[in-house]
């Protein structure tokens, strides 16, 4: 990744940025909470949406545009105006 790409990545504050590890997920650049339940959390990052699917999900903290989620995380989905749903 060159410097230009890295800077664009760092300053993309309206794009989803997720870090999932084991039973913890960190969702950055959160602008809105769209849906929240034990099995699904949907957040709006500004330009795109992301969904965390799982079981027994619990929001450990909502702070500084960052949400920390714990629980069994099965999948992560991104939605937005750029060509429908993409699942990872």
């Amino acid at each position: 990744m060159n410097i230009k790409d890295e800077l664009l990545f760092d300053f993309s504050i309206t794009m989803p940025r997720l870090l999932i590890s084991g039973k913890t997920g960190i969702l950055d650049n959160v602008k809105k909470i769209v849906y929240i339940s034990e099995n699904c959390i949907v957040v709006d990052h500004g330009k795109r949406y992301s969904t965390v699917n799982g079981a027994g999900l619990c929001v450990k903290s909502i702070e500084d545009e960052r949400i920390i989620v714990t629980g069994e995380i099965y999948s992560v989905e991104f939605h937005g105006n750029r060509g429908g749903t993409h699942e990872e």
């Binding site: 959160v30 034990e38 903290s61 909502i62 702070e63």
Partner: peptide, 21 residues
């Protein structure tokens, strides 16, 4: 519409912890 309230918390910088639905 609890999500709206939580969203406002995000926007106003209010720290929320252990959110259990």
């Amino acid at each position: 519409e609890l999500r709206k309230l939580l969203t406002e918390c995000v926007q106003r910088g209010i720290t929320v912890k252990d959110v259990r639905t």
